[in-house]
Computed example of a mutant assay.
Amino acid sequence: MHVKECIVSAPGKSILHGEHAVVHGKVALAVSLNLRTYLYLKASSTGKVCINLPNIDTFLCWDLSELKQFIPDSCGKREEAKRPDAELVRRLREFVGVTNGNLDTRSMATLAFLYIYLSLFGSGDLPSLTVCVWSELPTGAGLGSSAAFSVCLAAGLLSASGAISTPLKEWDNTARWCQEDMELINSWAFQGEMIIHGNPSGVDNAVGTWGGILRFLSGKIIPLSRVPLLRILLTNTKVPRSTKVLVAGVKDKINKFPSIMNPVLDSVDAVSCTCEKILAEMTSQPITGEHYNVLEELIDINQHHLNVMGVGHPALDTLCRVTLARGLHSKLTGAGGGGCGITLLRPETDCSVVQSTIQDLKDCGFDCWETSIGGPGVQQHSALSVKEEILEILNHY
């Protein structure tokens, strides 16, 4: 292996504006969420390949002899992968016990890991290594946890295989790859997402790779060149929902009331574009209170639009009511129908207000974190730059 040990991380993602409307050809803004997934890769001499996923109590090892049977005929180490090798996926699904009725997080994460590992190392001797992945992101909450996992796998395994260079110099705490290497990371992360989800949009892995804020329109993803870092509260209502059912419901409503719903979609598109303009202003001139006033109004407008689309939920109404009582503005993020919401924090928002709001939301039975959006994408870290408690978890396994 070219790299004997490395630590990488990638952010989660949130939708700032444009959810559901994006399905109907409107602009959406996807943002990196500074709750990160960390991967620690270490070469070993055990003759085994191990993956440890402490968040989901998964600890698996295979002898190299078991995995050699799956080495694909062609390996795309230095080429951008386009689509997964269907035959290799089929054989690995049988190996890890994934059937159509068994699409649990553990099995799909294992499948993605083995696929990328075998595809990248299959042209030579399979190396013995241990990979540990730990995340600050809740799974299944629409926050891009699987994409952050796939981005970390791609970055770690591409580095170990020598397909991309190691950006971290001796004196660095963190470092990012060059554009060409990032594109390769993103392409392999998209492979992982296709294995896990079947037909993903590519937005989540793009956010995990490049970070910041991305403009998404009709399948085209454009990273915004400069973006402000915005403080938010992220709240998980813990109300389960089906994205597929919610998307179908919006489509039915548009078909039933086109003259009513199409202007709503146009208005959401205008919200996204106006927000993009304000964010650009915030990086090119001094940030003022008026910028935050507009961002708050856009949040309120979009939340009302999402309720009109039928993707609201009483738990999300409670989130908006509780935060507004503290002078803060919230909207759902993602599919809606429960799930998660974001609350914008102004720079002058007092710490006591933030803590009181978090406690109010926890009293409602929700999970709540203070974090930020717009931060960096995939990075390599020195051990010194990783929080002590995270490093302890990664080293423990």
Rank of each mutant, 00 (worst) to 15 (best):
K42F: 03
K42C: 12
C50N: 13
K26F: 08
S65L: 11
V31D: 02
R90Y: 00
C61M: 09
V27Q: 09
G25K: 09
A81I: 10
A28G: 09
V49D: 07
P72E: 04
A43V: 11
L39G: 15
H24S: 03
L92F: 03
C75R: 01
S65W: 07
L67G: 01
V27E: 09
K82V: 09
S32C: 03
T46L: 12
K26Y: 10
L53G: 04
N34Q: 15
F59Y: 15
G47E: 11
L39K: 06
S32K: 08
K42G: 07
R93E: 13
D85Q: 00
V23C: 04
T46S: 15
L92Y: 07
V49E: 06
K42T: 15
E87P: 01
K77G: 02
T58R: 05
A86M: 00
S44T: 15
R91M: 05
V27D: 02
P54C: 14
D85S: 05
P84F: 00
I51P: 03
A81N: 06
A30V: 11
N34D: 15
R83T: 11
S44K: 14
L67K: 12
Y40H: 15
Q69V: 14
E66H: 09
N55G: 06
V23A: 05
P84V: 06
V27W: 04
A43Y: 05
W62G: 05
